[in-house]
Simulated scan of single mutants.
Amino acid sequence: MKNQSLLESFTCAIDGIKHVIKKERNIKIHLILMILALTLGCFLAFSTIEFILVILTSALVIITEIINTAIERVVDLAVDQKIHPLAKLSKDIAAGAVLFSAMVSVVVAVLLYIPKVVNILL
């Protein structure tokens, strides 16, 4: 696997992304929320910087979800019928990274969207 061409490396990466999108419910939720956030940003006339913040925080959540999925797969592969406490801990920590990135994303969303919506309503 180490001696793959650049094209083969990209193909493997794309296959991984396709797999996660097909098989993981949470990544679908994150992608839908990202699309909704960007669409709402269009209606609220976000600046370039505001769009960049939405894209970066959304990407952070999606990236951590992909890494979480990879960690879960490796841990599941390495674990027998009896779940080792470190295996559970590894999965919990990875899930915690997703949760933390999602919480940061919500904070950024509140800071960006609420003032714009209040401005429209007042």
Score class of each variant (00 low, 15 high):
I66Q: 09
K116H: 06
I35K: 00
C12Y: 04
N26T: 08
T64M: 06
T69D: 13
T64C: 06
L86G: 05
T39M: 09
F51G: 02
V117W: 10
S58A: 03
L121M: 09
V117F: 05
E72Q: 14
A45R: 13
I62K: 07
V107Y: 12
I27F: 02
D80K: 11
L121P: 09
L36Y: 05
A78E: 14
S90W: 11
D76T: 08
E72K: 13
S9I: 12
S47E: 07
V110P: 04
T39R: 01
L33K: 07
Q4L: 14
S105G: 09
L89T: 10
L44G: 02
A102F: 15
A102K: 08
L38E: 01
N3E: 14
L121C: 14
I66W: 10
P85Q: 04
V108H: 11
V118E: 08
E8C: 05
K23R: 05
A97S: 10
S101F: 03
T69K: 12
F100A: 11
I120V: 15
I71S: 00
H30E: 10
N3G: 15
E24K: 11
N68W: 00
N68H: 11
T57Y: 07
R25H: 15
N68L: 02
L31D: 04
V117L: 15
L38D: 01
A109F: 13
A109S: 11
I32N: 11
S9N: 13
L111T: 07
S9L: 12
L33H: 04
V74D: 03
I49F: 13
T39G: 10
I29G: 04
S9A: 12
L36Q: 07
R25P: 07
A109R: 01
N68Q: 12
V54L: 05
F46L: 02
L7A: 13
A70F: 10
V118G: 07
L112R: 00
F43R: 03
K91W: 01
L89M: 13
I17H: 02
L112Y: 01
T39K: 02
N68E: 15
M34W: 02
I83A: 02
E72P: 04
L122V: 15
L7I: 06
I67L: 07
L89E: 05
I55M: 09
M34F: 12
F46K: 04
A95W: 05
N68A: 10
C42Y: 14
V110S: 04
K22T: 09
A70K: 12
